[in-house]
Simulated assay, not measured.
Amino acid sequence: MRLRVLSEARCAIMTKPRLPRIEVCVEGVDGLLAAQKAGADRAELCASLLEGGITPSIGVVREALKLSTIPFNVIVRPRGGDFLYSEHEFQAMLRDVEALRDLGVAGVVIGCLTFDGRVDVERTRALVRAAKPLTVTFHRAFDMTRDYAEAVEDLVHCGVDRVLTSGQRRTALEGIDILRHTVKLAGDRLTVMVCGGLNAGNIGDVLERTGAYEAHFSAGNTLPSGMAFHNPHVGMGGTALEREYELTVTDEAAVRSTIAAARAQLVQPA
């Protein structure tokens, strides 16, 4: 009888609706501070969001640790582009994971694929081993795999804690069916964190329709540089010249309104 009571209590806990957890993707310390001020549960700390996020410097991470009041995960991605890495790139990722673990961040965000579009199981396991006891999130490299169901099983077997996905589509709304199925496949073995064009107008709908209880968005805003002098004859990167005098910042008001919309939604487990 006691076992039955415990079992029923456990089921009640597992099926009880809960408030979603919100992660904000930020570029640098200023973005992290804006996200935490707006009420984010967690941040993903990156450099160069124009490239989808690459590994920030150790100096940025140290400053973030000094000032943060919320946990943050750090992306470990040596460059933009695909997720098929050379051996030297992979070794650099391992060293970055070890350094971040020793610094004491909350977690790392990784993603390695094979040439044929599968999770690189060997390298993923190695990165997970190097990261522990930190939490490990597998980023949207998942969305570039050829078989998302197979990828879910690979991530579970590798010991990954969380996967970030837009349902293999440009936005979460476009990928809603795959997101819902991914949540069901993952069950309680892997947390599915939904992303992709989320804002105050759609985040509640996406959470309700997928059954996911973690969501991720960036809420970036472009502002003019504070530079008074502009040299029109030279640029420092591969973007348009005007981009040299623009800044991408985290919009605190947009973060706040999106979080409020998400928290108005009690998530029913899928």
Results as ranks from 00 to 15, higher is better:
125 R>K: 15
99 A>R: 11
52 G>Y: 10
72 F>A: 13
168 Q>H: 09
150 E>L: 14
152 V>G: 03
113 L>H: 00
73 N>I: 02
151 A>T: 07
89 E>W: 04
57 S>R: 08
103 L>Y: 01
129 R>M: 10
66 K>R: 15
39 G>I: 13
71 P>W: 09
148 Y>Q: 09
97 V>F: 02
108 V>C: 07
137 T>E: 07
87 E>C: 06
47 A>H: 11
118 R>E: 08
169 R>K: 15
98 E>K: 13
101 R>M: 01
69 T>Q: 13
94 L>R: 13
57 S>L: 11
150 E>I: 04
94 L>G: 04
109 V>H: 03
112 C>K: 03
56 P>I: 14
124 T>F: 12
63 E>D: 14
120 D>K: 03
65 L>F: 00
121 V>G: 01
54 I>W: 00
135 T>F: 00
47 A>W: 01
42 R>E: 13
168 Q>Y: 03
144 M>E: 13
42 R>Y: 04
139 H>W: 07
61 V>L: 10
149 A>Q: 09
127 L>T: 04
89 E>Y: 03
68 S>V: 06
47 A>F: 01
43 A>K: 11
165 T>E: 09
114 T>P: 01
168 Q>L: 13
139 H>R: 06
67 L>H: 13
113 L>N: 02
86 S>C: 09
127 L>C: 03
142 F>C: 14
167 G>D: 12
98 E>T: 11
170 R>L: 15
119 V>F: 01
85 Y>I: 03
39 G>V: 13
55 T>A: 11
131 A>E: 07
111 G>T: 03
117 G>V: 08
43 A>M: 07
52 G>K: 10
108 V>R: 02
84 L>M: 08
158 C>P: 00
145 T>Q: 02
161 D>C: 12
74 V>T: 14
121 V>M: 06
147 D>W: 00
169 R>V: 07
102 D>W: 02
132 K>I: 00
71 P>V: 12
68 S>W: 00
52 G>V: 08
112 C>E: 04
78 P>I: 09
158 C>G: 08
68 S>K: 09
68 S>E: 09
79 R>D: 10
